[in-house]
């Protein structure tokens, strides 16, 4: 009995002893996290809250007037602004065109590279192919602008050498928007290729071999073997591109400045114009809040899909 009491006492003593290092560990974890949290709060949370607050004010940086509380007026003005509505719809058209094209091309090219390990120069070709994705968008925009220049650009030089009339895409009302989509596609198709390769790589070899032994028709192979495994990574790629395309600013700003007229004015360019050309900080904050909610909506879809994956795995 005495022994069992001793054992009990010992086990009771052991309990807090076991908790102590846990708590120490927690402090250590928090200590490690603290710098990141500090900068996250300082650089991300505070400015976001600040932006929210500013959206309720009439504040123009170049004006000598103090910010004036105007409630929801900025939001009302924004929603009534037809030009901004045009920018929003143009942005959705842009992202739809760009993401569909990039996905289709990315899948096509990804499939071509898939399982071609012995193809000579494959690695080199892939490295070259992924280059546009790693070049900064500003540089990409600038060199495409130079390439497409009707007077000094290399494309038009060859066009004139071949005896055709020089053309200008970036100030042409009809061609400017497709040109932006083209350059965005050039820049981001490699990303979708990368996602396709990752998606195809996630298909278990055993299942592919079994399908090969069973001589599964290609459509059925895709539908029953590849798609169930590949869809999540591919879906993730599409969503990331969608969110990114929605925020496209640098490409349009550098290549066309949103022109001709407003033909390529995406919502991020409009936002830039309000904030940094007109310096209407209150109004542009309201636009930013709106954009943030759209970005949150897109992210929610992404999280929903990820959760769906987890559920299906469970």
């Amino acid at each position: 009995m005495a022994k069992s009491v001793e054992t009990l006492e010992k086990s009771i003593k052991d309990v807090p002893k076991a908790k102590k290092p846990e708590s120490k560990k927690n402090w250590f974890s928090w200590g490690l996290l603290a710098p990141v949290l500090f900068f996250f709060i300082l650089m991300s949370v505070v400015p976001t809250i600040w932006m929210f607050g500013l959206a309720f004010y009439d504040y123009t940086l170049t004006s000598a007037n103090k910010p004036k509380l105007i409630g929801f007026k900025n939001f009302v003005d924004f929603l009534a602004n037809q030009q901004l509505a045009g920018s929003v719809s143009r942005t959705f058209i842009f992202l739809l065109c760009a993401v569909v094209l990039q996905t289709l091309l990315g899948i096509l090219i990804g499939v071509l590279f898939w399982k071609n390990d012995k193809m000579p120069g494959r690695r080199f070709a892939l490295t070259l192919f992924f280059t546009p994705m790693v070049v900064t968008p500003i540089a990409t925009s600038l060199f495409w602008k130079f390439i497409l220049d009707p007077t000094l650009g290399v494309i038009n030089y060859f066009v004139s050498v071949l005896g055709f009339e020089r053309f200008d895409t970036l100030t042409d009302q009809t061609l400017a928007f497709p040109t932006l989509v083209f350059v965005d596609t050039w820049m981001w198709t490699p990303f979708m290729t990368l996602m396709t390769l990752a998606a195809l790589g996630s298909v278990p070899k055993a299942e592919l071999e079994a399908a090969q032994v069973d001589r599964l028709p290609i459509i059925r192979l895709i539908r029953t073997v590849i798609w169930p495994h590949a869809k999540f990574i591919l879906g993730l790629g599409i969503l990331l591109r969608t969110i990114d395309a929605f925020k496209t600013m640098d490409l349009a700003y550098v290549m066309t400045g949103g022109g001709p007229g407003d033909r390529t004015e995406l919502i991020a360019v409009s936002l830039y114009r309000f904030a940094f050309k007109s310096f209407k900080l209150g109004y542009s904050s309201a636009v930013s809040v709106f954009l943030m909610f759209i970005a949150i909506a897109l992210t929610s879809i992404y999280l929903y899909i990820l959760n769906a994956k987890k559920k299906s795995e469970a």
């Binding site: 809250i49 600040w50 929210f52 309720f56």
Partner: peptide
């Protein structure tokens, strides 16, 4: 948010 704007 509102005090932040007020601070601003």
């Amino acid at each position: 948010a509102i005090p932040a704007a007020g601070l601003l």
